[in-house]
Nucleic acid binder design. Structure first.
Lengths: 337, 337
DNA sequence: GTGAAAGCGCTAACAA
DNA sequence: TTGTTAGCGCTTTCAC
């Protein structure tokens, strides 16, 4: 059943391609790698020979000889979240067609698990690495520093020197929602949050600050519990008891908003007639699941695409001027299909 | 910024470990790979030397020398589906700690995209491959056949010779739901389906057949459109108009059921009082999103875990008696948290 | 049970 | 612009 141990793969090698093309092995190598200093005539000869033999480069040999693989590692905090899934898809769609392998690591929101992944993945000599956010252990930072491979940070932004990041500002998202609700004439506004990670907190700060600038005091209800649809209903109910006159709510994510919609429907409360809801689609549910909700949409595909292209530029050794790419947010109203 | 081209990685090599341990390189190699014919005393010497130097094997060199990598490829039809995400997680959790790299390929439910992935991934000489289902192109089959690497099929079952599969029977899932509803005294039963892929259809067949055996005729409503929450509401509404006396519905997946719950609530219809719903959690939404729904739960983690362990057995060259692992289904009632 | 030699397939380094 | 040489770090092969 198993293929017995052997030395060769049986596949055509670069040497055979070179022989067929009538050039030296290194010229064939250069031709196939698009090294610019090769005579175009020879390039096409090599290309033909390669095609004729059905040559496929051996990545292991390439990695061994060059001390650098064609693998790009991507580390995300979760796979249960559509945001990251779609980001990964976008990265794949940019990198795979260009011959890179994409290795996915899920660190389950744990800095130490991330450190372990970095340690393990550096063993395969990746040519680049894509990270989520900036919160990592010192050991992680040191390993990345020591390996000197191109590194792109996703989802968050920094102005630090020599750091490449593609993301968006949580504060502006919060502020955007505040302005949206104010513009609709709402004045008793609340932020309902669960699962208080740094991003959720910063979103709330942006919300509160923008309201404060308009002279409006933000109500709030924040619990550390993991977010869920059920919790959304509960929190909505609690908020209503505390502040029966609330007329606008920003939910830190869509599943809370979803539970609240459910609960509002049960209680016969008109949304957005009496209370306007705004969600934030940064959690497990994909956008189309919550019907008719105004929500902040994170530009998920864009993050992946931009991050991957930035990585390509770095791998090509290009001079990158914009080390920071701020993608911003959109406020969208989704209609159930 | 980029690490300039170089030959060496700078990391300690097996030769250095061997020198420090006072053995030959090949003995060090064997010791670290747990080849049984090595003196235990030498093994521990090598282990120590390895630890002292912080030795990490170079996978590229290993792959080149042995013509076989430590990578296991997993091909899934989608990442937007929690079922596959959780399966992948389980596979990772089994294979990574044992030193295997897991390469994920998403073929977007396209046989041709799958073929392309197989072609590309075989280039890296994976040591094994995990596939979803049995529907693939002839070219794919030929490539897999020609490469003779261990191959495990997930999600579906077969009795074919020399084929390893881990999954469950769609027909029995349908039959199970039929029996469940009958046992609750329901007699006007319907199957509501969208996105009619082979699995959805077979589920319906199992449902209908089990009902027929009990002398009950199944109602039905099936559309080819992609499944969504909104569509669930619509189909439910349509079904009610056609068959106002329906008292039990099997939705081919949870998001249809979810939309129907929404719609039932709007219309003031008691569920499960007047109509019992059964869902099937095989689609984008994760289980906890739909509150209070009786649903067929696919044993997602189990599929991954069992498939990965089967792969380990094959990689170890073990004799595998049970080529087919049927995991069955559970019928669970989820309460909103 | 252990080792010496050879070589996997490719690219870096240097030379022409 | 092209080629020669050497070697990446490991495992297979075969001899002891």
């Amino acid at each position: 059943m198993r293929k017995e141990a052997s030395r060769t793969t049986g596949r055509p090698t670069l040497a055979e391609v070179a022989r067929l093309a009538g050039v030296s092995q290194i010229t064939a190598s250069r031709a196939l790698r698009d090294v610019p200093t090769v005579d175009p005539v020879l390039v096409s000869k090599v290309r033909e020979a390669s095609k004729a033999l059905g040559y496929v480069p051996n990545p292991a040999a390439r990695t061994l000889a060059s001390a650098r693989s064609q693998s790009v590692v991507v580390l995300v905090p979760a796979l249960s979240n559509q945001l990251f899934i779609e980001t990964l898809e976008a990265i794949h769609s940019v990198l795979r067609p260009r011959g890179y392998d994409v290795l996915i690591g899920n660190f389950h929101y744990s800095r130490h698990e991330e450190e372990e992944l970095i340690r393990n993945y550096l063993a395969i000599q990746p040519c680049g690495i894509l990270l989520t956010g900036f919160d990592r252990t010192d050991a992680s930072l040191r390993m990345l520093e020591a390996n000197r491979i191109p590194c792109v940070h996703m989802m968050e932004l920094t102005k630090a020197e020599d750091v490449f990041s593609v993301g968006f500002s949580q504060e502006s998202a919060g502020a955007m929602v505040a302005r949206h609700l104010l513009a609709r004439g709402k004045r008793r506004l609340a932020y309902v949050a669960a699962q208080l990670d740094a991003r959720v907190v910063r979103r709330g700060e942006g919300f509160r600050r923008a309201l404060a600038e308009a002279g409006v005091n933000a109500l709030g209800l924040a619990v550390p519990d993991p977010s869920s649809v059920g919790l959304g209903g509960e929190l909505f109910d609690r908020l209503l008891r505390q502040h029966p006159d609330v007329d606008g709510i920003f939910f830190c994510n869509d599943d809370l908003a979803h539970g609240a919609i459910f609960e509002a429907q049960r209680q016969g409360i008109s949304v957005p007639g009496r209370i306007a809801f705004v969600g934030f689609n940064d959690l497990p549910m994909s956008a189309h699941i919550v019907p008719r909700l105004t929500s902040v949409r994170t530009p998920r595909e864009d993050v992946g695409r931009h991050a991957a292209h930035l990585m390509l530029a770095l791998l090509a050794g290009a001079e990158v001027r914009d080390r920071t790419i701020d993608l911003g947010f959109e406020l969208v109203v989704r209609e159930s299909s």
